[in-house]
């Protein structure tokens, strides 16, 4: 039985279709990536899962059925709009949030101490939240999400505003949660984190599902949609190429769907002033796939997503 099952949900706000027939399943014990550009409908989808919004149509099943008050205690949610009570002490705020999730005060107290030590916040526990740095507040919010040991963890942009050290720490924590058998839905723009952490992903654009499946399988499916070139000259603005980026001495070219490396090779053959030293069909990164799918989708739609 999946932890979360979303079936053909629709949600509109006035004339705007925010979510349009999105479906996916999140299995127990996996890290699931909910991806998409800004305004794609990710947060709306999360809010529908959490019963903050009702869908216009479609079904959502969470932890084996519709969401009720008991199940709320089994969910940890890190919203994109971060917020803690700024004029109160850190420890007081986190204990209050823990007890609101059904924890006994003594258990919350004990567990909170461990988390605060781990996140280097223990010595700041008596400070008011507003006296903490943004990164510290971010870590505190993650503690609030995990303190009650939820079965389902939903994190919206968990690495936002964190330095590399803390990013690694949060990454470790997320992986630990997976090993502990918990289910994680992660929404982020940082594709390399998705690539490193997620088992499966769904990519939504304009409220619709445009890609869904296992990360490795998707990468295999998209193999051939990117090439790496080493050489001299300008390799930008080639026909059939969605995006060109330079990494060290290499040029990475993400191809439009329907174009293959042979087309690019032929185009290069006709270009003046370039010298090719290496031409290689690359395994695309999730970043390349994201751009390829989203841009391709936008071109089909004839909409500039900005």
């Amino acid at each position: 039985m999946p932890t979360v099952e979303v079936s053909h949900i629709h949600k509109s706000f006035g004339p705007t279709q925010a979510v349009d027939d999105v479906s996916f399943r999140v299995e127990r014990g996996e890290i699931f990536g909910l991806l998409g550009p800004n305004g794609a409908g990710k947060t709306t989808t999360i809010r529908i899962i959490l019963d903050i919004f009702k869908p216009d149509s479609g079904q959502v099943s969470v932890l084996g059925g519709s969401l009720d008050e008991t199940k709320k205690n089994r969910i940890g949610y890190l919203p994109e709009e971060r917020g803690l009570y700024k004029d109160q002490k850190l420890e007081t705020v986190l204990l209050y949030l823990g007890t609101l999730k059904g924890m006994e005060m003594s258990a919350a107290n004990e567990r909170l101490g461990e988390w605060l030590h781990r996140f280097d916040l223990y010595q700041h526990r008596h400070k008011k939240v507003q006296e903490l740095s943004r990164g510290m507040q971010q870590k505190a919010q993650i503690i609030a999400t995990l303190l009650h040991e939820p079965d389902l963890i939903i994190v919206d942009e968990p690495f936002l505003g964190l330095d590399p050290v803390n990013t690694r720490l949060i990454k470790e924590v997320i992986e630990e949660q997976r090993y502990a058998g918990r289910t994680i839905i992660m929404s982020t723009h940082q594709m390399y984190q998705v690539e490193a952490l997620c088992n499966r992903i769904v990519l939504v654009n304009h409220g619709r599902t445009v890609l869904y499946g296992e990360v490795e399988q998707i990468k295999r499916d998209f193999a051939g949609n990117a090439v790496v070139i080493e050489g001299q000259g300008d390799f930008s603005d080639l026909p059939g190429v969605l995006q060109t980026r330079r990494e060290n001495s290499d040029w990475h070219l993400a191809l439009q769907p329907g174009n293959n490396p042979q087309d690019v090779f032929r185009a290069l053959a006709t270009r003046e002033g370039i010298k090719i030293e290496r031409f290689e069909i690359a395994e695309p990164s999730l970043d390349d796939i994201f751009i390829s799918v989203v841009k391709g989708d936008d071109e089909v739609e004839g909409v500039d997503n900005g």
């Binding site: 706000f13 925010a18 009702k54």
Partner: peptide
């Protein structure tokens, strides 16, 4: 019709992602 059904543009309903 529904208990929670804001009639607003998504941009008005928080920073939708």
């Amino acid at each position: 019709r529904s208990q929670i059904k804001p009639r607003a543009h998504p941009a008005e309903v928080g920073q939708d992602g």
